[in-house]
Amino acid sequence: MFALANTLKERGVLGLNQRNAEYTLWHNPRHLYPLVDDKLTTKRLAEHAGLAVPQLYGTIEIQRQVRTLPELLQPYEDFVIKPAQGSGGDGIVVITGRRKARYRKVSGQLISQEALDHHVANILSGLYSLGGHPDKALIEYRVKFDPIFESISFQGVPDVRIIVFLGVPVMAMVRLPTKMSDGKANLHQGAIGVGIDLATGKTLSGVWNNEIVIEHPDTEHPVQGVQIPWWDLLLNIAARSYELTGLGYQGVDMVLDRDQGPLILELNARPGLNIQIANQAGLYPRLKLVEQCHSELSGLEARLAFAKERFHCPPT
């Protein structure tokens, strides 16, 4: 047991206690949390800074507004409804089309207007929000993901997460939905996490349920060695989100849209640690390195160059 702990420590694996005690508690001032805990705030912040986000169709903030939902949805064939303060992807409904009076979910299942209303009411009452606070429901553009992911994801939208420390991208992964994860991009629900080489934007091996995989279990296409398109732009957006929020340690979640390119989905002040499993590498040495060299890095370009140079992954 201690041997295992020592091995993990040697490899620089960051544990939950260490992440909290040495990174989030130090580098993420509490008063900045509301900027990322509410997706609506994040969206406005990003738009203001000129970063692309999925277009907002409308919000529903009070129970009474739920009645106007059909009218609000009228112009759109497909859309996404999500809680503004949700966590871990809970409470997100993706509608891909309509069939008579019903909506078609991404799984192909049909859902009635009444059921959709109830779902929105649940979001408003805080069912999916952190701490059960009353929440808002956002209705936004449904991302049509880049064809590159067509062969290596099941139903849902794959997203790219980059951990940014003091403005320097330190680790990245792409999360691929599977049948098991029910189209959701959450690792603990059965999605595949695939590490990305920061220097090139090429995928490394993947992890599925704590096992290393090189093929997508549903499509049987290789997940390794895939070049993520728009990689430099993705890194650029991630690094800029440090100035956006001021949070020293954050996870930037982005999606790649077929037409619009990278869009920021959300920012996370307490990003999970599974990214280490996907990359087969510990975060700690990279964070230490950034801490040491941080004072010498002035400007966005210097930070990006630093990340690409230092966090290049030699194929093992």
């Binding site: 295992l4 490899r11 694996v13 206690n17 704590n210 499993i277």
Partner: peptide, 15 residues
């Protein structure tokens, strides 16, 4: 800031 005991199992693949 050390590991939690049950985290060891989670990160086993890394070791």
């Amino acid at each position: 800031s050390g590991f939690r005991l049950l985290e060891l199992r989670r990160f086993k693949a890394l070791a």
